[in-house]
Amino acid sequence: MKAPVLTAGTETSRDHATKAPLPSAARRKGKSKSDGFWPWLFVVPTVVGIGVFYLWPMVQTFYYSFTKWGVFGGAKFIGLDNYTRMLADSSIPQSILNTLIYTAIVLLGIPAAVILASLIERPGMRFASLYRTLYFIPYVTMPAAVGIVWRLIYNGDFGPINWFLSLFGIHGPYWTSTPGFALLAVATVGLWMSLGFNLLIISAGLREIPRELFEAAEMDGASRIRQFFSITVPLLTPSIFFVTIVTVISGFQLFDLLYVMMGKANLAMPQTQSLVYIFYNQAFLQNDKGYAAAIGILILAIIALLTAFQFRIQKRWVNYV
């Protein structure tokens, strides 16, 4: 039922806009109103959803970050106390560093995805969709389930990784409970999980590149490697830019993998915990929701800054055809 209405609506607005242009400013205002009505009607469910479940809670969280929020409600305004406390909290800079290292490692999945995608998308590649599916499965699997399986794989005494290493006489570390190794272990799983999504976006980007470019390059005698670096990579930069943005944002939201793979009372936790982990800890374990709200705002600010920075420097390296 909605589709015909949509067509009718867009047609009338197009009639106004193109076929019967009205000169006066007052009329033009009226026209833009009728332009706006139908589209707005159709985005109402989304806008209301985002407003109620995202924007309003964000505004509230911003307010609560200036309060001492009791376990059963009853927030009390305390000004900047939560923020000054955050400055003195030594676990915050450490966890920002941890999160940055995690994100940097997961970002290595992007070059990997570019290489894999250009192999899979080669003309004449057999079972291409099978490979795409295989790589995509980890992305759609629940992080909790992935975390449990990897926890077993990483097990220091009985895990397959250390068993494999022992074949070469190497005594593997306790991956998830040794400071340093734990972050590496968690980030490797994060990289592995994000590969499918990156691969999908980059594959789509690859298929947008006109074949003629490769054909022309081949006639000019360019090798496959040369084609990859001179045609594929530059023309993929919009897709690469997109997955970089998404990877950095999700990197800063690291929580579930950490929660499942590390467990409580882990020796390596200070060198591994992420900002969201501290947030969860304060909000839901220690019942200090006001402080947790302030940490939430910090996470939002860092993500916003990093994303804005990436949009600024994209002009230097992203080629839009």
């Binding site: 969280t61 609560y64 059963f72 929580f255 947030f279």
Partner: peptide
């Protein structure tokens, strides 16, 4: 238990109200 927290910033404000 982390399902509640994975929505991080957003979910926090949902539990307001008075005791």
């Amino acid at each position: 238990s982390f399902a509640a927290a994975s929505a991080a910033v957003v979910s926090l404000a949902a539990c307001g109200g008075n005791g």
